[in-house]
Design a binder for these strands. Structure first.
Lengths: 165, 165
DNA sequence: CCTGAAACTTAAATCCG
DNA sequence: CGGATTTAAGTTTCAGG
């Protein structure tokens, strides 16, 4: 018995073993590591490492390779968490809200959450002036906001992309 | 007149121009882009691109190159935002809390925030069982927690590391 | 599924104009 | 900064177990 629907590569749920996890662990910290270096650390030859990485890239386990930029070094030192509740909760309104949020470059994160609010967005800006600008002219222009609350980040204690251990 | 204190490279606040920003913009999306490709897109030769990247790496503008792993593909599909208030707000207690938080691999983010709570931590786990395990046996073991609130992420609408545009 | 080596390809790094 | 060169190195493949 086989599924009728073809799985696209990114849909396949891979079974990852210890070796795969080891590779991910290393690449998470430093994507510039060479296959040889990885192989060395895991006591493998290059072939399996090469093939496993390719497999995980194609399966979407590794979503991308990214240069991580320090916001403070590029004049985006203020982080604000903005909590949002929508007026209407039908699908249409939600979709429009999401569409707009995706287009706002200041928003680095948007989560649909449980509790008092519908969404939490993380906003990365230069300073309070820029946040006000965003809050009034971008967020404020959306027409189905019910209420919002802004929480300001005083300091970042920890921030990592590592999810594999 | 010169500063007496030597600046370490990572302390220097670089002035980034449009070309630097262009490079960052590309590397943010794809760290595997070659210097040639970047040079091509920005209508530059390889030399300035090479030197600018090196400069930004040394200045800490580019903090790291990372493989971004999809949490859902490695059985870490549940994201929880946990808000925490401490009993005592003196430096000592805060430091101990921070130290512990940094050691918890489930915590991918910890922000010191304004408002009702002192901290927000983002917890990445497999399922509710694993969250309970974390909540009871790790977070619960900390001795200066006053109160907490867990907000569950229903869906991730947007998640990006891009801060340069 | 791995090892090991070989072949290929391509990028990084340098130098001169 | 452009352009070309050189050298070095990483990736990828393949036979073999």
């Amino acid at each position: 018995m086989v599924n009728k629907k073809e799985n696209t590569a990114a849909d396949v749920q891979l079974t990852l073993d210890e070796k795969d996890m080891g590779i991910l662990k290393l690449l998470q910290k430093d994507a510039k590591m060479t296959i040889r270096e990885i192989a060395g650390q895991l006591n493998l030859s290059t072939t399996p490492v090469y093939e496993r990485i390719r497999k995980m890239e194609q399966a979407g386990v590794i979503k991308q390779y990214a240069a991580i930029v320090d916001p403070r070094k590029i004049n985006k030192s203020l982080t604000v968490l903005c909590y949002i509740t929508l007026k209407e909760h039908n699908k249409k309104c939600g979709k429009k809200f999401i569409q707009e949020i995706l287009s706002f470059t200041e928003v680095t994160e948007c989560l649909n959450i449980s509790g008092e609010f519908d969404f939490m967005i993380k906003v990365q800006v230069k300073d309070m002036d820029e946040y006000r600008e965003f809050y009034v002219n971008k967020l404020g222009e959306l027409d189905n906001l019910s209420h919002t609350q802004s929480i300001f980040v005083i300091s970042v204690i920890k921030a990592t992309h590592q999810v594999v251990y």
